[in-house]
Design a protein around this nucleic acid. Structure first.
Lengths: 182, 182
DNA sequence: AATTGTCAATACGCCACCGTATGGAGTGAC
DNA sequence: GTCACTCCATACGGTGGCGTATTGACAATT
């Protein structure tokens, strides 16, 4: 791994954390430079401009925190209800939702981030829906279960930031039981 | 109603719409002044500074879009399942969730807005939980149903901005059935 | 008619941030 | 030891937004 790549990723990782803590308006060139202990001369070597950073940031996040679930064949082997539980448990355990709300907040007011999030939602919905479909739910019945699952995964943790991990997993299981029960 | 009050509310209403369209970073003094066809001389008559506007905006939103449900005794009369359905239907029909995501996005990176949203969540959760409690659900079983209801109300519509009103109501009813069924 | 109060216009200084231009340090090629 | 390449530092001009100070228009009061 050469230094160019490394340094570019350092900017991206720091950007992601700043995004989470302060929102996209905190992801500024000179501020990041201060955080990283360099000046913006470095930034403009690695990126065209601030917009380039923002777009790269989206790609960076999608690759690291999303593809690992929806593109992962491991969840297809078991019986559907168990496979679904494994998938949503992985999200919680590996904190794949860590930057979720920050990205969603950003997407609300940025068209490009909006498109990324919408496309991603479709991938996720298709992924989850297939489980409910294989369990035997059809049409609107599968749809509402899919949506409730996605809602709960993406939104609920952000409303309970101080909840213990064990309680979260308990509620996650309970939600899974409730929605997979025929 | 004197002109002072009216004009102050004009700033607040415009701010709320700008917040929804562009986020809190769009709620800027000179920009709002342009939108309203005045100069910022007016702004600094009605508000101390930008921060004063932001804090007032929060209060403005809470009073207009939230108290009407949680502080409304009308939903307590009917049987619990029916009362719950009435309450969540009112939210959808009167678009009380219109500014929900914009506020939530703001709250993610602003401590004062964060506190407002957390307090509000508690009020809502208590409100919803009482229905499930009266239906006969207890403990974690009532908790998960409460959370799924709140998730669905706050988050799901934002993921389907182009969905028809009738389909939304249909899914809302289905969600209600699924969660109130013993 | 003069005075007071309400609201808005104008002009100013200030600061944060962006993007560019240019120079310079370090390293490997040969 | 020179050359070229990679990466960062420094200095600059430009822009946009904030908040203040001052003046002005208009209405109501007396």
């Amino acid at each position: 791994m050469d230094k160019t790549t490394l340094s570019r990723e350092a900017w991206l990782q720091r950007s992601l954390d700043v995004l989470r803590e302060e929102g996209i308006q905190g992801v500024r060139v000179e501020r990041l430079a201060r955080d990283l202990g360099v000046t913006k001369g470095s930034f403009y070597w690695h990126f065209d401009d601030r917009d380039d950073l923002h777009r790269s940031l989206l790609k960076f996040w999608v690759e690291r925190f999303n593809d690992v679930v929806t593109e992962n064949p491991a969840f297809q082997s078991a019986d559907p209800a168990a496979g679904l539980l494994e998938a949503i448990t992985k999200v919680r355990e590996e904190e794949l939702d860590k930057y979720e709300l920050a990205i969603r907040a950003w997407a609300e007011h940025d068209s490009e981030a909006g498109k990324t999030v919408r496309d991603l939602y479709e991938r996720r919905a298709t992924f989850i829906r297939s489980f409910f479909s294989r369990i035997g739910f059809r049409g609107l019945d599968a749809e509402i279960r899919t949506r409730l699952t996605l809602c709960f995964l993406s939104w609920d943790p952000s409303m309970h930031p101080d909840e213990s991990e064990s309680r979260r997993l308990k509620l996650l299981k309970l939600q899974h039981e409730l929605l997979t029960k025929k």
